[in-house]
Design a binder for these strands. Sequence first.
DNA 1: AGACGTTACGAAGGGCGTAAACATG
DNA 2: CATGTTTACGCCCTTCGTAACGTCT
Lengths: 296, 296
Amino acid sequence: MDPHLLRTFTVVARLRSFSAAAVELGYTQSAVSQQVAALEADLGVRLLDRRPVAPTFAGERLLTYAGPILLRLAAARADLARLTAPRPGPLRVGTTASAAPAAAVLAAGEAVAGLVLRVVARDELVRQVATDALDLGLLDGFSAPNDPLPVTELGPAEITAYGQQPAVVALPRTHPLAVRSALALADLAVARWIDAPDVAAPLPQLRAAAGTDGFRSAVRYDGTDVAGLLAVVAAGHGLALLPAGPVRAHPELVGVDLGEPRLVHRVELVRPTRGGEGSPDRRDGRMMKVADLPGG
Amino acid sequence: MDPHLLRTFTVVARLRSFSAAAVELGYTQSAVSQQVAALEADLGVRLLDRRPVAPTFAGERLLTYAGPILLRLAAARADLARLTAPRPGPLRVGTTASAAPAAAVLAAGEAVAGLVLRVVARDELVRQVATDALDLGLLDGFSAPNDPLPVTELGPAEITAYGQQPAVVALPRTHPLAVRSALALADLAVARWIDAPDVAAPLPQLRAAAGTDGFRSAVRYDGTDVAGLLAVVAAGHGLALLPAGPVRAHPELVGVDLGEPRLVHRVELVRPTRGGEGSPDRRDGRMMKVADLPGG
DNA sequence: AGACGTTACGAAGGGCGTAAACATG
DNA sequence: CATGTTTACGCCCTTCGTAACGTCT
């Protein structure tokens, strides 16, 4: 299973075309055809249906492996390259949207020879730090207090807690529950929620944390900015679990604390391991107490 | 970065000899030398010191990537092979030592055309299920209630909660704390502990969960059986955090519940994904409520 | 001198491109 | 018939083994 073939296969599957893949990869169409045939012969399974081109079931399955494998290969190469020649140029910091305020603070302290701040999606962030497209990443998410965020490990990367703040249920001031001082998550399962996976706590995670079904939503918010979502909540379209900071700063909203299970909004720092050897035991290193962040 | 070269490199690094690696891999010494040279040329770094043969710093680094990459490649191949031809023969169930009782129960229900029960280490278990050396695995560990155990993902494997039981602090009956009905983990940081990472909750995990240092130990227990460790605790060598079942069954020991942070002993079922496509969202699927197991 | 890794060289195999054949709508 | 994939074939490059050559103890 040559990574070369694997890569070609993934491109063909993505573009759903041998010829388009050939162009993207700089091969002839014939070569691509041969590579796919070779991979299929090696594995003894048909991976792609032709005309129209689409992955078979086995092909879909292989795709779930191929991505991580190719990513790790790239990460390994990038890591070794970093060891030999230190990169010149500005510090490239990546951040997920909701961690951007934390990134700004961090960058203010570190900025020396220029700075590039780039807002990227969660998966992209880890990928880019691993492949040396970023020097540093800030990742946000929701978890139990002092619990690490789930991050797919790609090699010896250091992931350290950077800060956390309480997560609160965002409610319009006029909402009947807005007067309460605390709310149990399970009691909110029947409420109407806004599905905003990139900003608020994802609804599946709420279901898991509460151990119940529910948390249904009629409104989906696909943006990455808090301000927009806050407006949607204020308009009464539904609830959302958000970092306390921005909710409390909004004039028309109330942020109500969660009783058990408590959740926090957490920011973690991702960076390539520098001095030490091997990957640190993530479980040990990350469940420590961390300073609470002030603003969102 | 051909996996072939990667594999050769890891073998040379492990055996610390080009010639021995050549024998193990079925190549000539010359070929091994050329492969290593090719890999070094490709990456632009010296990976091995010669005479004596030992990985350089960059080599050590590469080794941390190579293992997972080669494992995933093997897992992918095994997975696709499983899709095409269903394996004949007995059901091969692997289990970590402390999950063996659960495995026995499970096996009793499933046994049809023979059964092989194999006790293996934690890492081996996941590895063997991924590479189709096992059909099924039972994995144990300690975590917060209803929290998944941390398992390195190797592909679309289904990891489901199988059961859990409270974790208790094992104390000799004569111990001053044995009369308490519950104990806070943080208060036990100064006690003497037994370091038994394969049976009891690992001390680093306790430190992490309590958010404090401490949990020092003078005695280490390297076995995988609970009975032996229970005897060591009964002899007064120190404390250990263990599943409630076996502790309560021991005549000379008392098991005291934990206050916050509460911990449970958990058993999870690992098996290759059957019908569905892609890997299920682990975070969603696994934080569900699970039945409590009776015995340990 | 002996053990072990490297280098030189020739043979076999694999992989790519060109071009012709083939399938599908 | 047009578009797009596969097959045939020749060339080149890679990689292995044999064997001669360093080099360290």
